[in-house]
Design a protein around this nucleic acid. Structure first.
Lengths: 111, 111
DNA sequence: TATACACTCAACCAAATGGTTGAATGAAAG
DNA sequence: CTTTCATTCAACCATTTGGTTGAGTGTATA
């Protein structure tokens, strides 16, 4: 399984840093959507949505499939896994923090 | 425990989308560093590092403490936990994918 | 007290981002 | 074959980003 290089992470995290794009991901997590179906709930022009999809595609977060005059967009969770893998390095830190906090609270209750 | 709103996630993911900033986070994960210590291994001006730190601070990924003429920067892993919490929604998707792949491979081996 | 050190601020710059409009392309339906 | 629907492209625009330089502000130290 190939690990993401720094440039991949740049594109993945950049793609996730926009609320419209995160909203699109939630939408297609439920299943394939055409581009017009994706655009419908968003108050943006078609062209704007098209650009957002390109950003998501560049980060390999989505895939496309042609179906007649439609394009069906689907989630590609592999790329998200790369973001998760990067974050996992830091999990120990927030876990330590929480444990330290827990200790502190317990010490307060029975000193 | 307060959950991150959309605007928080914008700032967190944006902060993570830059290799210099991710490198700074790795550095201070090992312990507090002064700003000059952070700057040393990076081939950038002091002012540039100062700006990156401001981006990380805005995302609440780091904290500052004054120590004489130094400023000590430390990791604040809570914010990262918010990114992780957002991603966790998608974990089921990549897990499903991997299981489907595993199934496929196993079926190949013993058809 | 003068001088070095550790930064921050302001001004500037080029490139990228996120949006728009309007024209262009390509498939499907009348 | 014309029209309509689904989408992209090109041009444009304002704002943000990531960097620079050079001056300014504290805090130590000789």
């Amino acid at each position: 399984m190939a690990t993401a290089d720094s440039y991949d992470l740049d594109r993945i995290f950049h793609a996730l840093a926009d609320p419209t794009r995160r909203s699109i991901l939630r939408q297609i997590a439920e299943g394939e959507h055409s581009i017009s179906a994706i655009a419908r709930p968003h108050d943006l022009t078609f062209a704007a949505i098209s650009k957002h999809l390109k950003v998501l595609e560049r980060a390999r977060l989505i895939g496309r499939r042609k179906d007649g005059s439609f394009q069906m967009i689907s989630l590609n969770p592999e790329a998200l896994k790369n973001a998760d893998r990067w974050l996992s390095y830091y999990q120990k830190f927030w876990n330590l923090r929480l444990e330290a906090l827990k200790d502190l609270l317990e010490r307060k209750e029975r000193p």
